[in-house]
């Protein structure tokens, strides 16, 4: 898989928040084999340097994808992205502009606006968006080369709420890397996203809040592999009726 010209092997992108401890996080990263970890940046963290935590992350050797979690306006998101670029020395930014504080759904208007401005400033934007095709088109128009639609609201663990919309999105953007971001609860949800032909899955809470985050990290990575392999193997079509899997011809004649 290529993201902005970079070859990535692991199709699991992992968030770094809410783990019982950084030790759990680093072990989960290792167990999952992920190459990309998202990090949220808050203003006080930037000023006071959350250096301890970031040093721990850097030492894992993963690629950092800073995000603008918690930003509610385009301006706020752009400022956060600029701080992130300075701190992490990467043009990558996961762009999140929250539109509603209850379900944390993206404000797609501000998202498109911020994506266009950040692209103009040389960022490589990973937009957290809905499964709306028109918004997807606008984001590509704004310069995004990746789309990250939600599976369900952030942190809800509900799985893919609207697989039909995600399927339509895959069909509509056959050449664009698509990553399901948010809503994954169980390994089967992640596998389902991959079976739909998605390129990768980004998740955080499902691993961080599991009773055994390291075990769940491994489970998610395995499910994503299985889902991808299943997609590549061209699954059979579902049928209305039973079809015998054993041929009828050549049955033994029991006299």
């Amino acid at each position: 898989m290529q993201l902005y010209g970079t070859d990535i092997t692991s199709r699991l992108l992992l968030g770094s928040a809410q783990y019982p401890s950084p030790a759990h996080l680093t072990k989960a990263i290792a167990a999952s084999g992920t190459e990309i970890v998202t990090v949220s940046l808050r203003r006080e963290t930037a000023q006071g340097s959350g250096a301890g935590f970031w040093d721990i992350l850097r030492q894992t050797g993963v690629r950092i994808l800073p995000n603008t979690a918690g930003c509610h306006t385009a301006t706020e998101a752009i400022t956060t992205a600029q701080m992130a670029r300075e701190i992490f020395a990467t043009p990558w930014i996961k762009l999140e502009v929250i539109g509603h504080s209850d379900n944390l759904q993206p404000d797609v208007f501000a998202l498109v606006e911020a994506a266009a401005e950040l692209t103009r400033q040389g960022f490589q934007v990973f937009p957290y968006t809905t499964d709306d095709l028109v918004v997807g088109d606008r984001l590509l128009g704004a310069g995004c080369e990746v789309l990250m639609p939600w599976g369900a609201p952030i942190g809800s663990g509900q799985g893919l709420r609207n697989p039909d919309a995600l399927r339509a999105m895959r069909a509509h953007f056959p050449e664009v890397p698509l990553i399901v971001d948010a809503g994954i609860g169980c390994p089967s949800d992640a596998a389902q996203a991959m079976e739909l032909g998605y390129d990768a899955v980004l998740l955080n809470t499902a691993v961080a809040k599991a009773g055994d985050p390291i075990g769940m990290a491994r489970a998610m990575a395995t499910a994503i592999d299985a889902g991808r392999m299943g997609f590549n193997a061209d699954p059979m079509e579902a049928r209305e009726m039973a079809a015998p899997s054993t041929p009828i011809l050549g049955l033994a004649e029991l006299v």
Binding site: E44, T45, Q47, G48, G50, A51, G70
Partner: peptide, 13 residues
């Protein structure tokens, strides 16, 4: 619980 070394007063958020 914020991963931060900032001593500044509590934020509005």
């Amino acid at each position: 619980m914020v991963e931060s070394a900032s001593w500044k007063p509590v934020t509005v958020r």
